[in-house]
Simulated assay, not measured.
Amino acid sequence: MSPRRTLLVANPTARTGKAARAIDRAMEALANVGLEPEFFATQPEGRTVAALADRIEREDCGRVVYLGGDGTFAESAKGIILARERSGIDIPLGMLPMGTANDQGRSFGISAGPKALEQNIRTIAEGCEQWLDVGRIEAFDEDGESLTSDLWFDNCGFGLSARILAQRNRDRERVARVPLVKQLYRDKLVYAGAAFSEIFKSMVGGPLGGQFSCEANVDGEVVEWVGLTDLVINGTILYGGEWIFVEDCRPDDGEFEIIPFRSHADWVSAAIKAHKRNPVTEDDREVVGMRAREFRRGQRFEVRLFHPQFGREIPAQIDGEEFPSAHHYVVENLFHHLRIVVPEDPHWI
């Protein structure tokens, strides 16, 4: 019998205090189903992962449950993985998502937000588990020396979408300094403003347009793409909570999909064709002459990025957060690297 104690990982100061109310509700609901909750507050300056691993290694917990967005999911998952690597103790991760995109949750039928909290806790109490493949990304300098590495659980990407995220973060920092504007200019509006700004810049073209080329070695097969605006490596079936670029991808098959985007029209086409509620089938697209989404599937990706002389730096992101920019990356699929708690009949929503 595994211990019943449940570590609830969350940031009580998030969402201008709303998170604290959600934490109280979650603690009460977990107790009502006999999961013996213990609150574990996230810590600043990247200290959460090691502190959570230390707590797990006391061997009296049956599971970790995160409450929050993608960042809290990542910290909780990394804490579980670190504890397993250090001491062999392995426990699953349950999900109480509060974020907007919620790719990990929606890929398995788990809704986000306070209204879904009770149902998600019932799912955790039932205890059905599934493996999740985890991504490992490493960036290298021009001499081939490692700059940094990290784990990701949803997707990583390079180009326009990563640039929008970086601009959003800069804008969010500026907005936070102005009390009245901070109340009106919420996160979604900040993101929309950053997206409009960066898309406009990229449409100008030339070196400032942000286009780049890529040489990718996918499990030994070399492919080259030119004139890209974006490059995405996806792990879960959903991207951005709404799009399915590769319909037969699986989160536990030992492989990821690398997907190039060559223009704004390519993104618009993807937004239409790849939306999860799109009724148009692959056969329909062939009839009207729409090309199928180009991608490669594999376990290991060596990616080299090139931009024109005097061109813009090619930014990178993992799970919607900035990652150090480089021109050479290695991305690997870590097969069945994390246990997650899912509904008995997992399916995307």
Rank of each mutant, 00 (worst) to 15 (best):
T229W: 01
D219R: 10
V223Y: 10
V223I: 15
V204R: 09
V226E: 10
N217G: 05
K201L: 13
S202W: 15
G210E: 01
S202K: 05
W225E: 12
V218W: 13
M203Y: 01
A216I: 15
V204I: 13
W225C: 07
G210T: 01
S213H: 09
G227M: 06
E198T: 00
G209F: 07
V223H: 12
V226Q: 10
L228D: 07
V223T: 15
P207E: 01
E221L: 12
V218Y: 13
S213Y: 09
K201F: 09
C214M: 15
A216P: 10
W225Y: 15
E198Q: 04
V223Q: 14
F196L: 11
E224G: 00
K201T: 11
G210D: 01
G209S: 07
P207N: 02
G209L: 08
G209A: 08
G205W: 06
Q211D: 04
E221H: 14
F212H: 06
S202Q: 08
C214V: 15
L208E: 06
G206A: 01
L228T: 07
E215C: 14
I199A: 04
M203N: 02
S213Q: 11
W225F: 14
N217H: 11
G206Y: 03
E224K: 13
W225T: 04
E224L: 09
F212W: 07
V226Y: 04
T229N: 06
P207I: 00
F196M: 08
I199G: 00
F200Q: 03
Q211T: 15
K201C: 07
E224P: 00
G210V: 01
G209P: 05
G206I: 02
S202T: 09
G209N: 07
G220E: 09
V204D: 01
F212M: 06
I199K: 02
Q211R: 14
E198P: 00
N217V: 13
G220C: 10
V223E: 14
E198S: 00
W225R: 11
S197V: 05
C214K: 11
V204M: 06
I199F: 10
V204N: 01
G227L: 07
E198D: 00
V222S: 14
F212C: 05
G227H: 07
S197P: 02
K201V: 11
L208V: 06
P207H: 02
T229C: 10
K201P: 03
E224M: 08
V223F: 11
V223P: 04
I199Q: 05
N217T: 14
E224A: 06
S197I: 05
E224H: 10
G210M: 02
A216R: 11
W225K: 08
A216Q: 11
E224N: 10
G205D: 05
G227R: 06
E221R: 15
L208R: 06
G227I: 06
G206E: 02
G210P: 01
G220I: 11
E224D: 09
E224I: 06
